[in-house]
């Protein structure tokens, strides 16, 4: 019960929102990408790259915003590589995404050991220095409201930014011609050509946006929530995001709700893991006999169950995953 939360419920809610933030952020990016027809299953790798780059950049400069900026930039750069291979090289998007994941795994390991070598040579610690991580930001005035205040208005910067982004993207998709262009790119690229909208450029920009979001989501994990780096830090959250986009049927509202649901599951899982030995509730007693790995498994099983129960075949954008132009002449 850290951070001075008054009740378990309050902590659970706070934790839910905080755990949902990276899912939402990466999810919004992936959603925009998929709406234009680019499916990037390398989102997990992009998040991991965001984690390591944010951590090392923040630690090296001592500036938290440098970490965040570098993470977003690294996410965009990797996404640019992916998009280049997929859009201009016409490679299969799923397979290229899988390659991106492997690349991220290797790159983060390489970068991390280079960084450790560097620190060892200079006799520095690899811990994140003070000020290089983000702290919670309490919204003046609102954070003192009962329950809502500590839950909703005492969060990390990126949480507020993500909420604004979600509303912004919803507005763009609903009311602007940019939104029409995004949807048309994934639904009917041939229409875009007739309207003078450059298909590959549009998709490229959307993929960049997705990469930037995923990188920032990675930064959230490493320099906001934990202020540490570990190789299994993303732990499949990027894949969860892919499931959530399908689960939300390519709409932003359901996507956010799904993220909150999985955030809740995630934090419940963590709380169950840590508190089942301390609570003397008889109900908890029963839980104690369940191996904690099953709690860790819970989000993945829930994601599968949600897909199985709720995703009756919704085709998604018609041109999703298809190369453009379709015929090579």
């Amino acid at each position: 019960m850290s951070l001075g939360h008054e009740s378990l419920a309050e902590f659970l809610c706070w934790q839910t929102l905080s755990a949902a933030t990276p899912l939402m952020l990466a999810g919004i990016g992936e959603l925009v990408g998929e709406l234009t027809g680019v499916i990037d299953i390398g989102i997990e790798g992009l998040m991991l790259i965001g984690c390591i780059v944010a951590y090392t950049a923040a630690a090296a400069t001592g500036q938290a915003w440098m970490g965040l900026g570098a993470a977003a930039a690294a996410g965009m750069a990797s996404a640019a590589l992916f998009a280049g291979v997929v859009l201009w090289g016409r490679a299969d998007q799923i397979v290229a995404g899988a390659a991106l994941n492997l690349l991220a795994l290797g790159l983060s390991a390489t970068l991390w050991s280079l960084y450790q070598n560097h620190c060892a040579n200079l006799g520095l610690s690899t811990h994140l220095p003070r000020g290089a991580g983000y702290d919670l930001v309490a919204v003046p005035g609102l954070s003192h409201l009962p329950f809502i205040g500590p839950v909703l208005f005492d969060q990390y910067t990126l949480f507020y930014a993500t909420l604004l982004l979600a509303v912004g993207i919803w507005w763009v998709l609903r009311f602007t011609r940019l939104g029409l262009m995004i949807r048309a790119l994934g639904e009917s690229p041939e229409t875009c050509v007739a309207c003078g909208i450059p298909v590959r450029l549009g998709r490229f920009l959307a993929a960049l946006f997705a990469g930037g979001c995923a990188g920032a989501a990675g930064a959230f994990l490493s320099i906001m929530r934990t202020k540490a780096f570990a190789f299994d830090m993303t732990g499949g959250q990027g894949f969860m995001v892919l499931a959530l986009v399908i689960f939300g049927r390519w709409a932003i509202g359901p996507l956010v709700l799904g993220c909150l649901f999985f955030g809740a599951l995630n934090s419940l899982q963590q709380i169950l893991q840590t508190t089942r030995y301390t609570l003397a509730d008889p109900w908890m007693h029963a839980l104690r006999s369940v191996p904690f790995e099953f709690f860790q498994m819970l989000p993945y099983v829930a994601a599968l169950a949600a897909l199985a129960l709720l995703s009756r075949r919704h085709p998604g954008p018609r041109a999703l995953g298809q190369p453009w132009p379709q015929e090579v002449a």
Binding site: L81, A99, G106, L107, A109, T110
Partner: peptide, 18 residues
């Protein structure tokens, strides 16, 4: 640094795809 082999593998996939 560890991870270099993974980088090679990933780049090989991307090259083969292209």
């Amino acid at each position: 640094p560890q991870g270099v082999a993974d980088v090679v593998k990933a780049l090989v996939i991307l090259f083969m795809l292209l």
